[in-house]
Design a protein around this nucleic acid. Structure first.
Lengths: 230, 230, 230, 230
DNA sequence: CATGAATGAGGGTTCATTCAT
DNA sequence: CATGAATGAACCCTCATTCAT
């Protein structure tokens, strides 16, 4: 259930560059690129800065990636997949109420994506989708659609076991996930501005529990409802 | 209850540039800029194209705006305020259940912002916030915070009248609004890619009603709940 | 019979740039580019230098030409066509022996191309043909083939009037023109090196007359000459 | 009369790089470089490609040559000298008419240079002479001037034996050799473009015989011919 | 000797900004 | 007021050259 990956494990490396030779792997370049793309967007990120952050020269980037766009694609490509694998396993092995499964599942995404630098990826994709339709398409297929499918499986489990009342499944998926997405989007946009000091999302986990409680409240069949104090 | 404004009335203009008006006012320039910023983002929008769309020369832009960034600020500045004024009036004059008020209020925003070109503004702001913190701050104060306050007033009305159960108000505001925001964000990112053909949000109003129903279901005090067919 | 053209008339302009604005026509840029392309070849010519020579900034080049290659094409495109037009007219109006016509025709090419900066174009094309096959193709069709056709017409005139003996026409065309081409190729390669001081082509017109005399000698029917089959 | 040399024997090697010879001698590097320089010109040839073709790493090139230019010089330096040695021997040993000697001599050059990869060298020199004057100077002295001298010796033999009429010797040398040079220049420029499908030089030996016949025709004394002063 | 990863200066291209008309 | 030609700084990308291994 560990979601660590090569990319994520190096994302934070900015240490003074030591014995680089023979060790500056593409992974480090991708990590540096991802950080800057997330911070500034694709167009506003200069390859000079990516190189500097990775502790290499500009030319080195071109030893590993054909172009700035190829680097962008690489940075996007595999970042989130391991987490989806985790969630897949959770769905297969979880025993217990579906409400609890749903909460575990969404919190896992939050803790392993939303609360990490990877959280910048969805926001980045949203920002650049129109200018890079092919990347958007790839991401949509490999990440978005798969993510939807995972939540769908959880919802269907709850319906099958009569825990949930009948609802529009597709719409409910969006409703369930929208606040999590808003959270990461907010963190990487307004939330990153110093001047915006009142953080409506300043306590993300508390917010998420409220959200999950609220929606589960709405999803569960009436007889079982207990009034939860918040 | 009319939300029209100088900006919005021209936002949709795509007509072939007529014989250039002697009076090409800033409003037309802003409208042209907004359309392109929304379509391509700030960095990818060329002033050449803005000028062409407005039917003026590039130099003319500099008669009205000091820089590309100033044009961006102007384009963002007033776009959404009239709609907030509308909603303010709705809150003051509405008579009826708060659930119905909330639905009316959110649908109004959808119909006058989300479903119009103005819907691109929130997405644009999200994309560019980190690169233009001062614009983000302005927008946050004048649009985001005010919008939150309006929903808060509706929520407090429901609590005061014992229609809603006790909830975390701030979190609920976000939860209520997040799907609407996701909707516009999606429309102006993945939704604009031809290759992304499965539209999870393809029936926005139906989706919104499901959402509102679900959350109202969760918000209302238990005894009053009726099971709504979807 | 004047072979002057806009391009050629400006080829030599390097005068201190005066009231440039509104007057730096594409022709000047082409002339500057042609000079440098001829001197250094396509790859070794920097657009900075072309701009400097034309007295404009580098960006200005892109107001008139889409790319360095487009500038190259433009420089090549029209340079030699007026001279071919001249020769066409000579063929139509000349009265006298065909040997004299041929001499007049080749000398005209020499004086209006070979002995001018335009002489650099054939050499340039030869140097760059493999790297720019589409330009080579265009030039071959518009200049080379037409030039061949013009000489062919002169040859056929001589044959028709029994002035020349039967020869392989295509081969003879090449033989007639090869020394002229070598002359310009040499002038723009070895001939431009200071260190190469012995000029085998130092008296071009004398050389050309020798050449023409020699070949005409071989071409003309002589009572005792045997007709050689080729 | 064998013109083979270390350089030429390897010029044609394009075989897939065998298990790298422990002894990758300069000769192989030069051969690889020459092929690529001839194909693409100096500037457009990348040392990466030269190394790849020679089956060594890029760094290895710098073990043998100080710079790209040094490699260019080396590639040019010795390529054609063995053929000139051949022709020298022909001049010393030939018995028979000078017309026949001249034909043998020119055909030998054609078959051992023009029709082989070595034919690219003259074209390469012509293309790059202005950018590398010192190489041009070297080549001019060692190849061009010597070649002229060899033809001059043949011409003087014909004059001495009263086989040829009096002509301008220097000019005649150029005239004799120009078509051969044009042939190789054309083959390595327009002739290498797929789109240029009509080959005026498509039958080189036939063309050369026509040329030689024509010029010999003009050179030989004929009882009725008047001696033309040049 | 040989490698090949790394470098960094240099060139083509873009585009916000200016200003003479 | 309006124009649009001109500017030049900035950025992506290439590739000859170096050097630690």
């Amino acid at each position: 259930m560990n979601a660590s990956s090569a990319v994520r494990s190096t994302v934070a490396r900015t240490e003074p560059v030591r014995q680089r030779r023979k060790q500056a792997r593409p992974g480090e370049l991708i990590a540096a690129a991802l950080e800057l793309f997330v911070q500034r967007g694709f167009a506003a990120t200069r390859l000079d800065d990516v190189a500097k952050r990775a502790g290499v020269s500009k030319g080195t980037l071109y030893l590993y990636f054909d172009s700035k766009e190829a680097l962008f694609k690489a940075a996007i490509a595999e970042g989130l997949i391991p987490v989806l694998d985790d969630i897949d396993r959770m769905l297969e092995t979880f025993t217990g109420g579906t409400s609890e499964l749903m909460e575990a599942l969404l919190l896992h995404w939050w803790r392993n994506v939303g609360a990490t630098p990877l959280g910048g990826i969805p926001k980045l994709l949203i920002s650049e989708a129109r200018n890079f339709p092919d990347i958007a398409e790839y991401y949509h297929q490999v990440v978005v659609q798969r993510g939807h499918h995972l939540i769908r499986r959880a919802l269907e489990r709850g319906l099958r076991e009569k825990e949930f009342r009948a609802v529009d499944i597709d719409a409910t998926i969006e409703i369930l996930f929208a606040p999590l997405l808003m959270l990461v989007v907010w963190q990487h946009s307004f939330g990153a501005c110093d001047a915006v000091t009142d953080h409506p999302f300043r306590a993300p986990e508390k917010f998420l529990r409220t959200h999950i409680d609220l929606v589960m409240h709405g999803l569960r069949r009436a007889q079982n409802q207990r009034i939860e104090p918040t």
